[in-house]
Simulated assay, not measured.
Amino acid sequence: MTSGYDWAGRVGDVWADEWRRTDLSFGDLSAHLNAAIHAAAPRAGLAVDIGCGAGGTSIALAAARPDLSVIGIDLSASLVATARERGAACANLSFRHGDATELGDLAPDLFFSRHGVMFFDDPVAAFARLRAAARPGARLVFSCFDDIDRNPWATEAAAAITNSPPARPGTSPGPFAFADPDHVRAILTVSGWHGDPQAISYTQRAGEGPHAVDEALVFFSRIGPAAARLRELDDAAREEGRQRLRVVLADRLRNDAVDFPAAAWIWSCQAA
């Protein structure tokens, strides 16, 4: 389970350090997600990025809608600092450190998120607060991972560390908490939103270039299920696990890129 406390501390710090690799890994998905966000976005008004991370999705929307005010909010001070640096040239864009469900007097026309909503400790309460803050008819667009079995970047990498498959995740806060669309629909409905998901198959790129395997090894050793397993091992076992992971990554190397098939949902919703 990954909690808000984790994002505010160690996890957020690591993601801030690794933002270039995380943006690379989500590059293919982001093309689909940004298209859905831009389709839902008004020309003017206010849009809020929930768990904005290093700011890539906020920056893309601000550039596409120069008359729309865009605010990215994240629990991690390190990620917000990175996002502010990256988005400094966008006059209609700002970033805040804090809880994206506690908006004060802000009344957004659009909420959006790239993989940021699966970590709510109480998702019903969180989405209800967003609904209460939103303008009438507001839109909500977000992405989340599909079932772990459709994401071999997670299963193969984690299994390599200890030579055993990962346990199937439940619905506790974490990357696969929203994998079941029926579960997500129930949360959204009771909290005041209605909408539908689109299944997206995409390529998760772990590394590219002449040292693609090394890049992927660093990335998976710091972020994701493999990294979580590595942290639990002593030094000798950790190094053995990393070497097994390297073999898995090398097997995925094609044309100077380490790619894995991946699957996600993109939800497009409206305030009920």
Results as ranks from 00 to 15, higher is better:
222 R>S: 12
244 R>T: 09
100 A>R: 05
208 E>N: 11
31 A>D: 12
209 G>E: 00
67 D>M: 11
272 A>R: 14
233 L>P: 02
54 A>D: 04
75 L>P: 00
240 E>Q: 15
104 G>S: 09
270 Q>M: 09
50 I>K: 11
38 H>T: 14
30 S>M: 11
184 V>K: 03
108 P>S: 12
40 A>W: 13
247 V>Y: 05
67 D>N: 14
42 P>T: 03
164 S>L: 10
222 R>C: 07
167 A>M: 08
133 A>K: 09
150 R>F: 07
71 I>F: 06
262 A>R: 09
142 F>Y: 08
38 H>D: 15
94 S>K: 04
28 D>Q: 05
249 L>F: 10
87 G>L: 05
2 T>W: 10
150 R>V: 00
161 I>D: 01
156 E>I: 02
230 L>V: 01
174 G>L: 06
58 S>F: 00
251 D>L: 04
231 R>G: 11
35 A>K: 13
150 R>A: 09
158 A>I: 03
154 A>I: 10
37 I>T: 13
189 T>Y: 11
150 R>W: 04
173 P>W: 00
118 M>N: 02
265 W>V: 06
107 A>E: 12
258 V>F: 02
172 S>Q: 13
176 F>T: 08
258 V>K: 01
114 R>Y: 03
88 A>E: 12
184 V>E: 02
268 S>Y: 05
29 L>Q: 01
115 H>S: 04
71 I>P: 06
107 A>P: 00
2 T>N: 05
228 A>W: 01
123 P>E: 02
211 H>E: 13
64 A>N: 05
270 Q>I: 11
11 V>K: 13
167 A>L: 12
4 G>A: 06
165 P>K: 08
55 G>P: 02
74 D>M: 07
188 L>V: 06
222 R>T: 08
70 V>F: 07
36 A>P: 06
117 V>T: 14
104 G>P: 08
40 A>D: 12
66 P>V: 07
13 D>V: 14
236 A>G: 08
9 G>M: 08
156 E>P: 02
73 I>V: 15
156 E>T: 08
208 E>R: 09
127 F>R: 09
26 F>V: 05
132 A>P: 03
131 R>G: 15
180 D>G: 11
147 D>T: 12
205 R>M: 10
163 N>M: 01
145 F>G: 03
196 D>K: 13
215 E>H: 14
168 R>P: 08
103 L>V: 04
8 A>R: 14
140 L>S: 05
96 R>K: 11
228 A>D: 07
30 S>G: 12
52 C>E: 06
59 I>H: 04
231 R>F: 05
246 R>S: 06
201 S>R: 15
153 W>K: 00
226 A>P: 07
38 H>Q: 14
235 D>S: 15
241 G>Y: 00
101 T>N: 00
237 A>M: 00
126 A>I: 04
209 G>F: 03
230 L>A: 02
6 D>R: 07
15 W>Y: 14
76 S>I: 03
204 Q>T: 01
78 S>A: 15
219 F>A: 10
236 A>E: 15
44 A>I: 03
147 D>H: 14
151 N>T: 06
63 A>N: 12
136 P>N: 05
100 A>S: 14
242 R>Q: 15
204 Q>M: 13
120 F>T: 05
215 E>Q: 14
167 A>T: 11
211 H>A: 12
144 C>S: 14
